[in-house]
Amino acid sequence: MEIRRSLSARFLPLVLPLALIPAPAFAHGDHVHEGTSPWSMWSVSPEIVIGLVLAGWIYWRGARHDLAGDRWRMAAFFGGLFALFIALISPVEELADHIFAVHQVEHMLLRTIAPMLIFLSRPQAAMVRGLPAGVSRFFAGRGWLRAVIDGLRYPPVVTLLFLAASYFWMIPHYHDMAIENEPIHYLWHISLLVTGLLFFSVIFDRRTAPQGPGLGTRLAMFVAAALGNIVLGSFLTFKNVALYHAYIELGHMWHVSMLSDEQTGGIIMWIPGTMMFAVSALIVLYRFGSEEQRVTDQRLRAGRQLVVERKRNSTLAFGLGAFSLLMLAVVFSLVATIDHHPGGQRDFGMAGEIPG
């Protein structure tokens, strides 16, 4: 049992994506007709439903006896699965092919909200216990598989992958290609989900330094991810020409210009998307403070001198400073949004149409 627990933190980032990989539910590139109701656009895919149910069953099987007094963890995990359900099965999935802003909501669910909730629940041990013994033993080796996962979870590498998955698919050529081509769209979803799971598996790693990443490393990852969102979101918000034309080809909905749609999508990426990182950073700070308090209490009970008090205080001060920097970036983003537009607001319903 102890072997399974120790291995779970390293191998779950591979196990979960296999269980949750979004299979194609419909042919991307389908056109919609005028007057189509969004509530008729459910994308019920047996593969996705089975994947979500399987992940939930594995977790429940491994956690039901250990989380009697920790219900919030179970709620967080199933909240993450529900976010994937909204992104991949509800009308959000098909509307995303016809409305750029909705597409950004879908990607925020896939890339940030679902992975954040899943790993906030600390599901590693429960998932490994819930797997059949033969399957869990498959992941118990120390060969190339473990080396690959460890390499992908190295903080600079996973942060770069997390940002690259977002930026690459926003290049207009590849963005339009993925909207119109089902296998590429499938790969797009996988890349966002897998990099999100890897990223938040490091952020919410229960192990402290040196076994796990230190507080400064985690907050640096948050700042990099938040700044990546701010830069890309502000670019989409302030540009004055539409970049993505596949939505027009497939039937743009909601009677707004493509430019207005893309600007609204930029704001969604910029502000709500960045705030998800701020919330996660606050949770990490709280956990580190609680853990250091627990260690301090143990040493007091053992009658030891607290020679690390100064180190503890400096660590928390650094963490709070980094978190304040992140929050300031968000505030300046909001101020810039207002200051760059006459009257302090933008009328997105009246923004310019697609040129020519």
Rank of each mutant, 00 (worst) to 15 (best):
S45R: 03
E291T: 13
L81D: 06
V307D: 10
A87F: 05
H255D: 14
V284Q: 06
P156H: 02
V295F: 01
E34L: 09
T296Q: 11
M177Q: 10
G352E: 11
L300V: 11
I89L: 15
A209D: 08
Q211P: 00
M253S: 08
H255P: 00
Q263Y: 00
D30P: 09
P38T: 07
L160S: 13
M327D: 09
S90P: 13
G356Q: 08
F11G: 04
S234N: 05
V105M: 10
R294C: 05
Q211T: 14
E353V: 15
L306M: 12
G265E: 07
M327A: 15
G228P: 10
I118N: 05
T337S: 07
M41E: 13
F168P: 08
A83M: 12
V53I: 15
P123Y: 01
R301E: 15
P91A: 05
P46W: 06
R312S: 13
G62T: 03
T315P: 02
F78Y: 09
K239L: 10
P115H: 06
A147T: 12
S260W: 00
S234P: 00
L334Y: 02
T36D: 11
S43A: 15
G319D: 08
L282S: 15
R10P: 00
R206N: 10
G35W: 11
H28L: 12
I50G: 00
R146I: 04
M253C: 09
V32A: 07
A278M: 08
H103R: 13
M170S: 11
T159E: 01
G356S: 12
M116I: 01
E2P: 01
I203T: 02
W188I: 01
F11Y: 01
M177D: 08
Q263I: 07
F277V: 05
I99L: 12
M108S: 13
V158L: 04
F323Y: 14
V256G: 07
R122Q: 12
S201M: 06
P172H: 03
I149D: 06
F348R: 04
T315I: 11
P342C: 01
R129H: 14
M177F: 12
G134E: 10
L325E: 00
A226F: 05
L95A: 09
D297A: 13
L187N: 01
G141P: 05
F85N: 03
S37F: 09
D261R: 08
H107V: 05
G266C: 05
P172L: 04
W144V: 14
A242R: 06
P123N: 02
W42Q: 08
D176E: 06
L7P: 00
I21H: 04
R10D: 14
F318W: 00
R153F: 00
A27S: 13
H33G: 12
N181H: 12
A19Y: 01
D176T: 09
M221C: 10
S8D: 05
A96W: 00
A76C: 15
G349T: 14
R346S: 13
F318I: 14
K311C: 07
L160P: 06
V102K: 05
A322L: 15
G344K: 04
G51N: 06
L160M: 13
E180M: 12
M41S: 12
G35A: 09
A63L: 02
Y167I: 10
M74V: 15
G80S: 10
T159D: 01
G352Q: 09
A281L: 03
E180Q: 11
R122F: 06
A281W: 00
V231Y: 03
D297R: 11
M258D: 07
L20N: 05
H33W: 02
I99E: 01
E47L: 13
